[in-house]
Design a protein around this nucleic acid. Sequence first.
DNA 1: TAGATTGTTAATCGATTAACAATC
DNA 2: TAGATTGTTAATCGATTAACAATC
Lengths: 218, 218
Amino acid sequence: MAKDTKVSMAIIRRLPRYHRYLGELLNNGVTRISSQELSKKMGVTASQIRQDLNSFGGFGQQGYGYNVKDLYDAITMILGLEKTYDSIIVGAGNLGQAIANYTNFQIWGFRLKALFDVNPKLIGLKIRDVEVLDVDLMEDFVSKNPIDIAILTIPKERAQEIADRLIAVGVKAFWNFSAVDINVPDDVIVESVHLSDSLFTISYRLNEDELFKKLKNK
Amino acid sequence: MAKDTKVSMAIIRRLPRYHRYLGELLNNGVTRISSQELSKKMGVTASQIRQDLNSFGGFGQQGYGYNVKDLYDAITMILGLEKTYDSIIVGAGNLGQAIANYTNFQIWGFRLKALFDVNPKLIGLKIRDVEVLDVDLMEDFVSKNPIDIAILTIPKERAQEIADRLIAVGVKAFWNFSAVDINVPDDVIVESVHLSDSLFTISYRLNEDELFKKLKNK
DNA sequence: TAGATTGTTAATCGATTAACAATC
DNA sequence: TAGATTGTTAATCGATTAACAATC
């Protein structure tokens, strides 16, 4: 089981989206915004925005609305984006390399310290100055270089084993791209991105009408 | 706005997970399972499993439970995985290539017909026999080769424009990896994978305890 | 001050869980 | 038949929306 959050996951998952929209407004030179204006832009209710924000404090001002920069900075802080996070990628295949190459994460304080793989052809390779190491060296590396977030881009067969090994050397958070649910102790965080699951909701929706026609005829 | 579904999205998003667990059981030679046994494996309530499945019909049998193969096949059908889907990837950078290389999607009937990019260095490149074409040829290609799903792995600045152009030539579903919400007509499906949003929920959770200490002191 | 808009309480809605009669 | 377990209705819970007093 992963750690329970003080604030509901429904709200937490909306925070990055608020952050994006406020960043955009800030870029466009907008200095203030009401919950109603923002709600129109985002396609949510003004009530929800006010409720969500008030889980963390009163960032607005009656009669005025919200100061865009202040609110953006507050959400940046709430999301923990004022800190830095050291991370490793386990699995230096296509997806692992793609994530390693995605420099945007670095901007937000997520620093990649190493990649690991079993494939001798990949070991020694450098991706944006970060080296691919033999996965046998993983525990040793993490013991010497404390790692906040382990990114798992490995086949599902190996995911639980790798997670267990990393938990044993103190890793407390996983970004899991393997097509399997990993089991971790209560104090360890897992955020999974199940790409196939996501894709299958598309095929479901492309077929839903036909599906219910089929089901009715039974 | 994207199309409303008959079944709630909460349920739809659980279907691929059922599918994974049942596939695993099937692989392990398990022939029958009760909602209670499955609930223990998956960490959900038996009640939820029965409610979810009964949105689509009665696949079980009183006193027996569910036949694993039958239920697996039923969910395969429900998810639309008995059909094939022609797709294109727009944006042949690291992430686009990683997805193109991920052969598992092909197994489930998702066929990649082409990639598109603006970068002359990428145009002409082949990824697993699929060619990267100039994005200028995109509409022409889609007009001649009907495409079910367009996968957007492009910078956020270009996402809406590309989506609009594809909608104009009849694309009805998008798998969007751009860090922006795209607006589409009612009859068009969008499934977004916002990687940064997902990552930021990790930094949030790593910081939550400290955050609330900070907030209390104000 | 008057108008606007928040912060917050109350009402509603939808999703999850519990319970149990139906039935294999 | 008796036991087990579904399918389904009813109860509960949590999240969303509405309403409005507080206040800038």
